[in-house]
Amino acid sequence: MRAVRVPVPDTAGAEGDGVRALDVLTAVATRTRAALGECGAATVVTVGGDCGVEVEPVSAALARHGDGLVVVWFDAHGDLNTPGSSPSHAFHGMVLRTLLGDGHRDLVPPRALRPGQVILAGVRALDPAELAYATDAGLAWHTVPELTADPGVLVPAVAAAGGTAVYIHIDLDVLDPEEFGSLSYPEAGGLSVGALRDAVRALTARFPLAGLGITEYAPRREEDQAVLASLVPALLADIATG
């Protein structure tokens, strides 16, 4: 297993074709591809940065595992906008849609995920265009109450999708801000740290881990540092890599 630490992009720059700071994003993608090339076939843990850092690691996992890859997207937000639908034009709200093949030409990967390869987990704040897309595309979606009641519910969902390996994306705003407050875009009603840990460990006990991304940490409270320091080793304990 190898870890890739990706610099936080400065996304305050000029907008390019509906995507803010496009030049920075393409530069980060280039550096990330280079780092992934050095890792070879290792299972990679990517620490962002915002969710935009996930395009290249997920693409690399898809190239390795093909149709057997399932991406579980732990996030309060869907990240399903396009440059045309995004209210903010911030790429971190377009990442998953880009991985699904709809996005800026300079950022869409050569091979796109199929909707059947994606499972939304803990998503609870979608723009109208995102909700319409998720519904029309038939994306699988498990809510916070479902995950809280049964953290193992994602295991049969991945199996039903034909998954032989799982990529786990964690935007930390999937957590409840009452329990973990170091977030740029908190949304009430999130997962507990324990429920997230148990859901991830249920997945990694059953499926090889194709990659793990942990994103959107915005240090605000000292106590959250301790939470994160204990959470990450717990997520990676006793995993099967692939």
Rank of each mutant, 00 (worst) to 15 (best):
R111G: 14
G181Y: 08
P7C: 13
V95H: 02
G162Q: 06
V200I: 02
D67N: 11
E216G: 02
P128K: 03
V45R: 14
A121N: 01
A234F: 09
G213S: 10
T241L: 11
A140M: 01
E179S: 05
P115M: 02
L120R: 02
I168N: 04
G78S: 04
V166G: 12
P128Y: 08
A121E: 01
P177L: 02
T164Q: 07
L209E: 13
S59Q: 08
T135G: 09
G242S: 05
F180W: 09
L183N: 03
V55C: 04
G122F: 00
R97F: 11
W141A: 10
V174S: 05
T11E: 14
E222R: 10
I119N: 07
H169T: 14
V4Y: 03
E54Y: 15
D224K: 00
L139D: 00
A125G: 10
E216L: 09
H142V: 03
V72K: 11
H169Q: 14
L25R: 09
L235Q: 01
R124N: 12
G213K: 00
L203T: 15
R2F: 09
R97M: 05
A29N: 14
A29M: 13
E187Y: 07
E179R: 14
P177K: 07
A137V: 11
E130V: 02
D173V: 15
P145T: 00
L183G: 05
V55E: 05
D23R: 06
A165C: 07
L183A: 03
P186L: 00
A3H: 07
F91V: 12
G101Y: 07
